[in-house]
Amino acid sequence: MGALRQIGAIVAKDLAAELHTREILSAMFVFAVLALVIFSFALDLEGAAGRAAAPGVLWTTIAFSGTLGLSRSLAREQQTAGISGLLLAAEDRAVIFAGKALGSFLLMLIVEAVLLPLGTVLLGVNLLRLELGLIVLLGTLGYATVGTLIAAIAVNTRAREVMLPILLLPLLIPLLIGAVQATAGLLEGLRLAEVGVWVRLLVVYDLLMAAVALLTFESVVEV
């Protein structure tokens, strides 16, 4: 129970700091809206074209606005030396990892809560469906897990803003394939059971990456 409370404390601290400045959230919002609008212009997304491209556009937007948020939140952590404070306060590195990943997960969900209705309007497809929500949850969970681990590495490198997407995006290939295919299936009117293979892929990805991240995070944050 102690560990859960510690995780909760880290998440609460991160969210409180973010809701106070809204620095990362506003950047992610504006970026996501920009991406959607530019995709619509560039690919001429109206009617049938919008419906066909919607899954890809949705997940590309999530992936890129996610890297934006991750790199900002870790850079802030480094500027304020927050991570060394965390390392002193919580003895278990897994707790810190879970807290940071959960924080990123929630931030991304807030952005997606706006992105989905906006996409529904701009792309002309109904993205506000319960089954789709599940896919978005699973995809975002895996994204936040891998993203937190890689951001902790990238933030220590020279040119970290460049290194984060270069390191992160290849690792997300299976996740993005699964999420895009599941979304496309659901938008074509399939039921959740009919895209079960993709849901399983997302679940396996999330579990496997969470296990790897929990085992290796200690080596990443050790000073």
Binding site: L149, P170, M209, V220
Partner: peptide, 12 residues
């Protein structure tokens, strides 16, 4: 860092 990345990459 590279060891961790090598592990995650291989799992991918």
């Amino acid at each position: 860092f590279a060891a961790v990345y090598g592990i995650v990459a291989f799992v991918t």
